[in-house]
Simulated assay, not measured.
Amino acid sequence: MDIVYLDQNKWIELARVYSGAVRSGPLAEVYFQLLAAVEAGRALFPLSASHVLETSKRNDPESRGHVAATQAVLSKGFAYRSRASRLQVEICSVMHQIFGNPPMNLPEHWFLAECFLEAFESLDSLISQSEEVQRISRILTVISPADLYTDYMTGQSDEVRRMAHASLKQGLSDLVGRMEMRRKRLTGERVDLRRRAYFVQLFMDHEELFIRIADHLGYSYERLKSIGASAVKALVEEVPTLNVEAEMSARLEAEAGALTTNDVLDMQSFYTAIPYSSRVIAEKASVSRARQAKLDVRYQVVLSHSLTDLLNLYSKPPT
């Protein structure tokens, strides 16, 4: 089964078919072919935390409902797990490699969660057994994940929704500010130096997590550091989420022009999707950065910027 990531703008395009605004042509053909592919179990189009946030912030209820319904039917309510749980599994795997132990035995699609809410750390059942997680599990016994998603998107309190997104916007703006400061410090430097500087920053930012995971696995963090630079390097360069973040950020920050909150969301989308997808359909600029970093080769993912690249892909018999 193909796991296909669609940029939010691609979801909006497909929602035009769902709503009836587009009734014929290549886009309509693609939409109905994708519906059939999902029904046949040949493809799935999971959601990410960015999708949930971007759909929720649409102020027009009708438009929000169309996008949500389109996402629900093609994702079946499934989502990529939270960054925190993906990191935990990735770091555990790399530590096993560093110490020469057998790789972890993981289910094929361990990175997917049945419910979109698990895209958020506090509600991700892989790392949390809170009362809220248990309550969601009970809810899913009486409603499908897809229906829960559409109900969530159409039934939110408008006041609470707007307040939450104002807070989110401020948080993203603060992150953009920190990125601009780092960008300024490295003015004139090449992408390779920016990438290495970002890896160092990521190692420092996640050192407590490395220590906690090493202790949980029964490895001495001191012994880990004694292995030398190769171990330290592996803890950022061989951890897919961190590697993609560094590669994409280094190229983004090397470009001219002011950074935006959409740039941050695009980066988060790529480090979520690239390591775990068969295909990623996104905007040209982000696809270009990923190709420059050869992330498509490293993670064996097909990158594209047009939905029409999916035309007839799933109408042929599987090979």
Rank of each mutant, 00 (worst) to 15 (best):
V160G: 00
R162V: 07
S220P: 05
V160T: 12
E207M: 12
S144D: 00
D192K: 01
Q170F: 05
V160H: 00
E180H: 01
T141M: 04
E208N: 10
G218W: 14
R190Y: 03
K225M: 14
D147T: 06
G188T: 03
D151Y: 05
H165P: 10
R195T: 01
L186K: 00
I211P: 07
G155L: 09
M163S: 04
Q156S: 08
L202T: 13
V176A: 00
K169R: 12
G177L: 02
S226V: 05
G218C: 14
M163T: 12
R183S: 08
K169A: 14
D192M: 02
L202M: 11
I211Q: 11
R190M: 02
M179C: 08
M179R: 07
L148T: 01
M163E: 03
F203H: 10
Q201R: 13
L172M: 09
R138Q: 12
Y221S: 08
G155R: 13
D147E: 11
R183F: 03
V200C: 13
E207C: 12
R138H: 01
Y149S: 05
L202C: 13
V160W: 02
T154K: 15
F210S: 09
F210D: 03
K184M: 04
G228K: 09
G228D: 00
Q170I: 05
D158I: 15
F199W: 08
R185N: 06
G155I: 14
D215Q: 14
E189Y: 01
D205E: 14
A146S: 11
Y198T: 11
E208L: 12
I143V: 15
M204H: 12
H206N: 15
E208C: 03
R161E: 03
L224Q: 11
R182C: 08
K184Q: 10
I143H: 05
L148I: 03
F203Y: 13
R135E: 12
S230D: 04
A229C: 02
A146L: 00
D151S: 08
D174F: 01
V200S: 15
L186Q: 09
S137W: 02
D151N: 11
R183H: 00
R182N: 07
H206T: 10
R178A: 08
I143W: 06
P145N: 04
S157R: 13
I139T: 06
Q170A: 15
R196G: 01
R138C: 01
Y152C: 13
L209G: 10
R185K: 04
L186H: 08
I213T: 10
E222L: 14
G218A: 11
Y219G: 09
V160S: 04
F199N: 10
